[in-house]
Amino acid sequence: MARKTMIEAIRDAMDVMMGRDDDVVVFGEDVGFFGGVFRATQGLQAKYGTRRCFDTPISELGIVGVAVGMAAYGLRPCVEIQFADYMYPAYDQIVSEAARLRYRSNGQFTCPLVVRMPTGGGIFGGQTHSQSPEALFTHVCGLKTVVPSNPADAKGLLIAAIEDPDPVIFLEPKRLYNGPFDGHHDRPVTPWSNHELGEVPEGHYVVPLGTSAIRREGSALTILAYGSMVHVAMTAAAETGVDAEIIDLRTLLPLDLHAIQASVRKTGRCVIVHEATLTSGFGAELSALVQETCFYHLEAPVVRVAGWDTPYPHAQEWDYFPGPGRVGRALLETMAA
């Protein structure tokens, strides 16, 4: 087993699946010859040819639109939207077409499609290279939404997504590509080579969609997090000394509600963390579910820590980002409640 970056793990997943299944095709802007602006598809065109991995015109609508047609034909397209922020022109194709094709045709046509997109901030990308639009997908019936937090999961989840019979939105926290960023932007990032979840098994394996992972066992409080916020939560727990149980959701839909219930019923306290804006964010759904299913076990109000309800700013990036300081304060306040 080798240690890999998250980008290498994602590339490995596509490589494994292209090797196993001739129906898997990979395309997007700059994805072919160059290998993608984040290098996720580097080498795939050289290995599998332009028939299986190719560059597309700059049209997100076109990329997802042709992918829906290909999936209906019987291929398994795994396409890249260069930044999640560029997804909006393709939204109609995702919401009205990919997500509903199975339902509206009563299964005559299906859409086994993966749309990968780098998400989240932390790279001084401003409002058009930093967004976390996961709630725009979890709100759509017919889609599955996945957000990995580490290389080992990213590979297993992406393989599961490519093998899934339905469309999957695969959001890659770009700040985690090279290491488990803990939210302290002023300190060097530990590379994945120094982290146990950088251990990526060789060959084919899946992390089933709809299963969460406990990243830290604890008894005082439950933190629900996904993507980059898992590592921020780990840091906040360590820095505050709060004995938090940290659940990495991994898949937002389908959601591992059993794990959430089991943990919150045990700890009686729940803090939800995400980088996306607060209002109508996925945290609202999580909060409602915790209230509905764990109310009589709660000893404190459920708290959400999220991006502020502003566009993602450029200069104020680290004022916006819900880092370990904000998360830590929420942990202490919830413990004191």
Partner: peptide, 11 residues
């Protein structure tokens, strides 16, 4: 919406 899908199916 299906105009572009036809192109994808053909591809």
């Amino acid at each position: 919406t299906q105009y572009i899908q036809a192109v994808g199916w053909a591809m």
